[in-house]
Design a protein around this nucleic acid. Structure first.
Length: 414
RNA sequence: GGAAGGGUGACCGAGUGGUUGAAGGUACUGGUCUUGAAAACCAGCGUGCCGUUUACGCGGUACCGUGGGUUCGAAUCCCACCCCUUCCGCCA
């Protein structure tokens, strides 16, 4: 959510930035509601003042008949106006929540095709490799057929050494995150609607992406970002505790409705995967710096796992509602001879904090919204694909990167 | 799932219809005292919104889990819901 005052002061800017992101929000209409709301509010508050004046006169004695009568009249008028006010406020808030976060001026314009490559690391291998699904199924390590039998398409079993590999990846990831100061957290996998909306997952798009428990206000998380954002909701964080750094370990459940087709082969796009998610609550002036550190951490992860990658700055049209600035790390896919998304990290400034009312006391003693950031530390399904494809060696073995070997009983290949 | 008790400011905790935005305490901030610190004492100390002001500020309004209701008037009464604690049941 944006600050209404900011929108009032910069209506064209907000409209432009929303448009760049591809969000159709009528700022003029929003400001109209805002104006109407404020006018009504003044009338309502004036009536309330009259009521308060009338009743405080009667402190400890019975009111006269006229006072009761006057009070009744005021009450009728108030009830009427309050109803009008609350319906305007409803429309106003609905619209305000739809306004996406603004973006800095150096954000590439356009959609996904305009994402800007910032950096490349590693040597993309050009020889042919077996794709991860075929490789895994042949060895009985990945089983989509039986996954479909019990749950449906895009569900799977992982077995044997791939399970060990998964645990190793998370162990390594946790260790790396700890080096940067992150506290490991496990989180609720089911959350309320309110928690989802707080993260800025579009309330409407929900149905395409998030599983809902029938008959309850409970939803399977699409990422630990959701429960981690809500963790400090409505709190005033002690300034000396900032930044608060968490690395959440959880499964991620995604409907991925309509996401079939390209880039959905095998483990790349599935309904469920385990993930390590980084989350930062910090002072506004520190968020840029923490964004860089999140990128550093992610790069260090890829380098340790010897996965060639490139760092990409996400263009406006490819940003989500809450992102102010976002980078993706794309791994080199030897099967596709192309880079594909592996992890991402976003600075959402105070967009989520404002919605969930997460604040701290600044140097002047004023309460102010914190900034929040999130980033992938490791989404195993994709890491698994990247490892299998990039580390295939002679004899169809897959080499295990040195960094992971300590977590796999020293095993050096699968 | 059943029963009982409870949700008040950063925290603890009074408060069952009318100067209660809310006693008291803690914490915090400033001051006195002290070589310094502690202690003691004095003072200050919530937030949102609307309006107003060059500004310090000022005026109004709202907020005692959430949402409704009763009343001239609600933290206080009524209803629903949420959450917490304890006990019972069930269970990894």
């Amino acid at each position: 959510m944006l600050d209404i005052q900011f929108i009032r002061d910069n209506p064209e800017l907000v409209a432009d930035k929303s448009k760049q992101k591809g969000y159709e929000v009528d700022i003029t209409q929003l400001l109209g509601f805002d104006k109407e709301r404020r006018e009504l509010l003044q009338q309502v508050e004036d009536l309330r003042r009259q009521r308060n004046e009338l009743t405080t006169k009667n402190k400890d004695q019975k009111p006269s008949d006229e006072q009761v009568k006057a009070g009744r009249e005021l009450k009728d008028k108030l009830t009427d106006l309050e109803h009008k006010l609350s319906s305007i406020e409803q429309e106003y808030e609905d619209l305000l929540k739809q306004v996406p976060n603004v973006t800095p001026d150096d954000t590439p314009e356009g959609g996904e095709e305009n994402n800007r490559e910032e950096k490349k690391w590693g040597e993309p291998r050009q020889d042919d490799v077996e794709d991860h699904q075929a490789w895994g199924e042949k060895r009985g390590l990945i089983d989509f057929e039986r996954g479909a039998k019990v749950a449906g398409n895009k569900f799977y079993y992982l077995k044997g050494e791939l399970v060990q590999l998964e645990l190793a990846v998370f162990q390594f990831g946790l260790q790396l995150a700890a080096k940067y100061g992150f506290t490991p957290v496990t989180v609720p996998h089911l959350v309320s609607q309110r928690a989802i909306e707080g993260t800025g997952f579009s309330a409407k798009g929900d149905e395409d992406q998030i599983y809902k428990i029938e008959g309850e206000d409970l939803h399977l998380i699409a990422t630990a970002e959701i429960p981690l954002t809500g963790y400090h909701a409505a709190e005033i964080l002690p300034t000396d505790k900032l930044p608060l750094l968490y690395v959440g370990l959880s499964p991620a459940y995604r409907k991925e409705a309509g996401a079939y087709g390209k880039h959905s082969k095998g483990l790349y796009r599935v309904h469920q995967f385990n993930k390590l998610e980084l989350y930062v609550f910090c002072k506004p002036e520190d968020s840029e710096q923490w964004h860089k550190k999140l990128v550093d951490l992610e790069e260090e992860f890829c380098q340790a796992l010897e996965i060639p990658y490139r760092l990409v700055r996400i263009a406006a049209g490819d940003l989500g509602q809450s992102a102010y600035k976002k980078f993706d790390i794309e791994y080199w896919s030897p099967a596709d001879k192309n880079y594909r998304e592996l992890m991402s990290c976003s600075n959402v400034t105070n967009y989520q904090a404002r919605r969930l009312n997460i604040r701290y006391k600044n140097a002047e003693g004023k309460t102010e919204f914190v900034h929040t950031l999130n980033g992938t530390a490791a989404a195993f399904s994709r890491v698994c694909v990247a490892l299998i494809e990039n580390h295939q060696a002679a004899g169809d073995k897959v080499k295990i990167p040195t960094a992971l070997q300590p977590f796999m009983s020293g095993k050096s290949e699968i």
